[in-house]
Design a binder for these strands. Structure first.
Lengths: 124, 124
DNA sequence: TATACTGTGTATATCTTATATGTACACTAG
DNA sequence: CTAGTGTACATATAAGATATACACAGTATA
């Protein structure tokens, strides 16, 4: 398979796996219903523990990317991108709200942040 | 002093201290040059270790809120709010950039985020 | 039903980071 | 000198993240 796991990458192994699979799914390289390698296969190929692959697959399933059935294997889910997008947006909204709250002490408003992120001038 | 440390608050003790002092400074309750209680005093009053207060003061100094001089004590700094604001903005810019990068997989743009945050009525 | 695949549950090991601490030492003013 | 101040060092503890082995259970099919 296409997965590469690098010791130079500071991300944990399970995350290197999920990230690469997510990208493959998002880009269409992996299409819905495609069977993923079994956790044993993948573990052998990457020379890491089966359990670490299981962890990666479990994460992917929780996030809606794949479906796993005991005794059968794991398969790319027929992803509802709109739903996933909404969930991600909710998550982001939450993070931004926290940032805004922390920024309030410095008299930094939402508009200030939007402006600076756009890369345009900051007001005086 | 005005500091209250609560075991119910999930934040660590040193953070409860820094947060309350930051707020007092930001609101003007603590003015520049004001002498803070010595770490021993504060520790005694709050019934926690001197070292934890030292940690809190050290953080405050690193962030530019106070100045500490060995043998003398700690004093509220003559804060350059514009500078602090800029630093905070840079920090935020960095965080938002990370969020945007992660969001790209879901075809979520900066504008999408700005819109959804505005929609939630986040305004000061 | 035997078998050769598949995933699962439980228990643990290791490592890192965060948090909190005591004690002995050093600086400063009067 | 002394009585206050902060500092450095060495730990201790707890919590969380990461990775693992091995025995167990589900599934398809010859």
């Amino acid at each position: 398979m296409f997965i590469v796991i690098s010791p130079l990458n500071p991300d944990p192994m399970y995350k290197q796996v999920t990230d690469q699979i997510k990208d493959a799914i998002a880009s269409g390289t992996l299409r819905p219903e495609t069977k993923l390698p079994s956790i044993r296969e993948m573990a052998k190929e990457l020379k890491i523990s089966m359990i670490t692959i299981k962890r990666a697959y479990a994460d992917l399933e929780n996030e809606g990317y794949i479906l796993t059935r005991s005794g059968l294997g794991s398969f790319v889910a027929d992803i509802n991108w709109d739903k996933l997008r909404e969930e991600k947006l909710t998550e982001i909204r939450f993070e931004i709200t926290k940032i805004l709250h922390a920024a309030a002490r410095f008299d930094i408003s939402a508009e200030d942040i939007f402006t600076t992120v756009r890369g345009k001038g900051v007001k005086e």
